[in-house]
Design a protein around this nucleic acid. Sequence first.
DNA 1: CTGTTTACCTGGGGGC
DNA 2: TGCCCCCAGGTAAACA
Length: 277
Amino acid sequence: MPELPEVETIARGLKSSLPGIRIIDLTCHCGSALAQDAETFRSRLTGRRFTEVRRHGKYLFLMLDGGLALAVHLRMTGQLYLASSKQGRDKHVHLEFFLDNNARRLVYRDVRKFGGFLLLNGTTPREFLAAKDLGPDALQVRPEELLHACRRTRRQLKAVLLDQRVLAGLGNIYTDEVLHRAGLSPLLPAGELTAEEAGELAKTIRRVLLEAIRRKGTTLSDYRDAEQNRGGFQSFLLVYGRRGEACLRCGGSIHKIRVAGRGTYFCPHCQRAASMP
DNA sequence: CTGTTTACCTGGGGGC
DNA sequence: TGCCCCCAGGTAAACA
């Protein structure tokens, strides 16, 4: 799942323990988690010291001395966490960084193997993000940017919010939660959004993401933070996963449909789908 | 160029 | 218990 709140929670956990720590060695158990070959990784990273941890959207950047950085994306089931030296590894652990505090190691685990690491050598995170055409972080997006992106397309509103070039960080779960709280249907043609609605939408995005960060993210199954703890926001989901249940706002029934190729939960009664009356 | 579908990979759950 | 099918939080390549 990891969307912005989960990645931010991991980033905060790593920020509190990684900076200043040196990589003594690393082991790769699965080539597909690395954009470069394992030997390049090992030779470039061994002996380096972590300096800083950053996040933009769903990307993590582990900054190292010597002008190096690791761009990490967890995709669907990636986990990045600190493990004690005693803790064993299962078959889904693909990468282990052995650290010079010799009590812990940094572990990358990923059941579906969609995620992974890219070594940035001389490229800054900012340049990397620009090359990917990533939009502003969802916590920083301005109402005018949101309105402009909506006005220039014929897509449905949910497709726009999921588009990482428009804003970076929203995934399937938080998009449904945001749209419900904003009273807007995922099916609404994005071009019909009013300036006022775009303003409210930007505020709702920020409010939902900050609350989810406060709860340390949403754990439906795989997600764990940097200390391997579950999140708590799953108890506060209003629509996601609630097909057939009563809408907590109007008492209507939560529907599940497919929008932009994704399972989508919403309340047709209190989420506006058509032009304003 | 825009927008939609598919592929990537593994596991879990439901139906039989 | 087992087999088959469908579904899953993300992205980007392939396609129309």
